[in-house]
C-alpha cells in the first residue's frame, strides 16, 4: 500500500515535471546584422529552476529578455522562431506584451527599485493592473514582502524611500515587486552579481522557496550557484545552446567537451 502511494506520488511528480510552461523553438535573434541567438531550443517545466550559464557575451541576457519580449525595446532587434508560453506563441501579434509580462515577471541584474516608498514599490504592480482598494493593496504588499523574505526587515518603515535599503534588500524588494502581480514565471538575470555573499545566499534560499510556486529561469556566472539552485541547466556559447540537461548530470557528467572546459574553468 505504502509502496503504491509512493508510486503514485512519483507519478504525479513526473506529470508535473512534464507540464512544459515555456517552450523555445528554433529561436533566432539579430541585433542589426549581428546574430546573437542561433536556433535556440529549450523547454522549461512548471515549478522548476532552469539555470543559464555561459561566458560573457554568449547571449544569456538576450535570451532571457526574449522570454518577456523586453529585448524588443531595442529597435535593431529582429526575431524568428517561436516561444510557446502555455501553448501560445508569445510573438504572435494578438499576444500583447503587457499581458505576457504580467505572466512572465523579471528581476534585473542591478536592483532597480522606483524612487518611491517601499510600500509604493510593491503596490505599483497591483495598481497598474487596476487594484485600488487600500485594504487589498495592503494585503498584497504584506504577502509579497513576506514571500520575498523582506517583511520583518521593513515592516516598520514601509513609507520610507526604497533607496534607503541595502543592495541586497533592494533586490529582495524588486523580487517582492515581481511577486506582487503573481506571475507564472520569474526571469532573473544575474540577480546576485551586484550583491555581497550574505545577500547572495539569502536570494539563493529565496529562489529555493519560490520554486514551490513559480517557474524560474536564472542567468548566472556563478557555477556553484547554478549547481545549488537549479534543476536543469543550459550552457550557452556564442549564441547557441551547447548542452541542456538536468543540473546534476550536466555538472557531473557533461556530454560536450566545451561544457566540460567551461565548468572546470578552462575558459570564460
Amino acid at each position: 500500500m505504502i509502496q503504491l502511494m509512493e508510486k503514485e506520488d512519483a507519478a504525479t511528480a513526473a506529470d508535473q515535471r512534464n507540464e512544459i510552461v515555456l517552450d523555445t523553438r528554433e529561436l533566432n535573434l539579430w541585433y542589426g546584422p549581428e546574430q546573437a541567438l542561433k536556433n535556440i531550443a529549450l523547454q522549461m517545466s512548471e515549478k522548476q529552476v532552469t539555470a543559464i550559464i555561459g561566458p560573457s557575451g554568449c547571449g544569456k541576457s538576450t535570451y532571457i529578455k526574449s522570454l518577456n519580449r523586453m529585448v524588443e525595446m531595442n529597435p535593431l532587434v529582429r526575431i524568428t522562431g517561436q516561444v510557446m508560453f502555455k501553448k501560445r506563441n508569445i510573438f504572435h501579434k494578438n499576444y500583447s506584451v503587457e499581458e505576457l509580462r504580467t505572466q512572465v515577471g523579471m528581476v534585473f541584474q542591478k536592483p532597480n527599485p522606483f524612487p518611491k516608498s517601499i510600500y509604493e514599490n510593491v503596490a505599483y504592480g497591483p495598481r497598474i493592473h487596476g487594484i485600488r482598494k487600500k485594504k487589498l493593496l495592503d494585503e498584497i504588499v504584506e504577502k509579497s514582502l513576506r514571500d520575498a523574505a523582506l517583511w520583518d526587515e521593513v515592516k516598520d518603515r514601509l513609507n520610507e524611500n526604497a533607496y534607503g535599503l541595502s543592495g541586497g534588500q533592494q533586490q529582495r524588494l524588486c523580487i517582492a515587486r515581481t511577486l506582487s502581480i503573481e506571475p507564472e514565471v520569474i526571469l532573473m538575470d544575474e540577480p546576485t552579481s551586484a550583491l555581497d555573499p550574505i545577500s547572495t545566499l539569502k536570494i539563493e534560499e529565496l529562489v529555493q522557496e519560490l520554486k514551490q510556486d513559480y517557474t524560474i529561469v536564472i542567468v548566472t556566472h556563478n557555477m556553484q550557484q547554478a549547481a545549488r539552485v537549479s534543476d536543469q541547466t543550459a550552457f550557452f556559447l556564442n549564441g547557441e545552446v551547447v548542452e541542456f540537461n538536468d543540473t546534476v548530470t550536466l555538472f557531473s557528467n557533461p556530454n560536450d567537451q566545451r561544457t566540460e572546459d567551461y565548468i572546470t574553468g578552462r575558459f570564460g
Binding site: 523586453m70 509580462r101 504592480g125 493592473h129 515581481t178
Partner: peptide
C-alpha cells in the same frame, strides 16, 4: 524597464 517588466 522595471515598469514595462511588470506589464505596465
Amino acid at each position: 524597464e522595471a515598469s514595462y517588466g511588470m506589464g505596465a
